[in-house]
Computed example of a mutant assay.
Amino acid sequence: MSTCATLSRELSEPLAATAATATTWLLVEQNGPWGAKALGESHLDPAVGRALDAATADTGVRVALIRRPGRHADCLPTARHEVVVAHTVPAPGRSWVRRGQVADPAELLSLDFAALGTGDHGGFGVPHVGGPIALVCTNGRRDRCCALLGRPLAADLAAAGHSEVWEVTHLGGHRFSPTMLVLPYGYAYGRLTAESAKEVLAATAAGHMVPEWSRGCSGWDRPAQAADQAVRLATGETRADALTLAQRPDGAGRWRVGVRHEDGRSWEVEVAEGVSEPPRAESCGKAAGTPSRMEVAALREL
């Protein structure tokens, strides 16, 4: 059976700089089945889902639903909803994860989403204590690859018991399934196996990221994701929060990204937007297209 993930792998499409962008994630536990547009197609009150989606628009906050790995078709309603809020800009000292519970997700509409997007949690919940949090995309109603490849991975990781594991509604990049976002640093990964995913979680627990399967850090826009990957490959640096990035436009479809290491070293990276050829489907069932890709044109140490 041909899938978008199979074709992407056969075409050797690069993983780098394909992560969904969000400075802050708002993750809300919601048991039961999910539809393709889960905020309005689940056991969550659709009006609340639409209101959360509207309230977080243009704030840097991305809302997703989460649930524990397992069977979901006939789950009992959620009495209290676990809520995880994570700011995922991995510059030194800037990432944080906080969590709480609500009886009704409508309570979350009182949050200051603009502040959350900038990294101000406003005292929500309590700090997360413990190891990495793994979020594996499993929403088969959005793309069958996420169900076929994501659900077994989430189940395997949960059974291993080394990290906290949740299924999540949408991380983007279905064709890179199985995909996983790991907190606290917000790096997304693709084309994982059970073994490589466990390696990623072990590295995260030690304060590192793994370039080989990295799609980029969600806290940065895609040009900066490309620059981050380029510097890491050039230097071998894997500490998740060792680099600070700042990007600026440099003409249509081009950017210059300044990268600074915490030890004082710095680089300038030129990034250009191209397209992926030949055409391929970005998701199962969709027409073939040429998704954009970020290409590093130059890397200079300053």
Rank of each mutant, 00 (worst) to 15 (best):
G35R: 02
T179N: 07
V259N: 00
A230R: 05
M180S: 11
A160S: 13
A203K: 00
V97G: 01
L44V: 05
D263V: 12
S110A: 15
A5E: 12
E237T: 12
G70A: 06
P105V: 13
R151D: 09
C75T: 15
S12H: 10
P152M: 06
P223Q: 02
D263P: 04
M294D: 13
H87I: 02
R232A: 08
C217Q: 06
A287W: 05
M294C: 13
G40N: 07
V126S: 13
V200W: 08
E277N: 06
D263H: 10
G125F: 08
L108D: 02
M209R: 14
C145A: 10
P92D: 05
L44E: 05
W166C: 07
G186W: 03
P33M: 05
E262D: 09
L233K: 04
T23G: 12
G172C: 11
F124L: 03
V271S: 07
A91E: 13
T59H: 05
A57S: 12
S8F: 00
D263M: 11
R191T: 13
G258S: 04
V231W: 06
L109R: 09
A114W: 02
A22P: 01
T3Y: 04
H81P: 01
V200P: 05
V102D: 10
V85E: 00
L181P: 01
S214V: 07
G70Q: 07
D241G: 00
L135T: 09
T18P: 08
C75L: 15
P69C: 02
A246Y: 05
T18G: 10
G173V: 12
R62E: 08
V231Y: 05
R265E: 09
G140A: 14
G49E: 05
L299P: 03
S276I: 11
A230C: 06
P184D: 09
V126F: 05
E268Y: 06
G219L: 07
A297M: 12
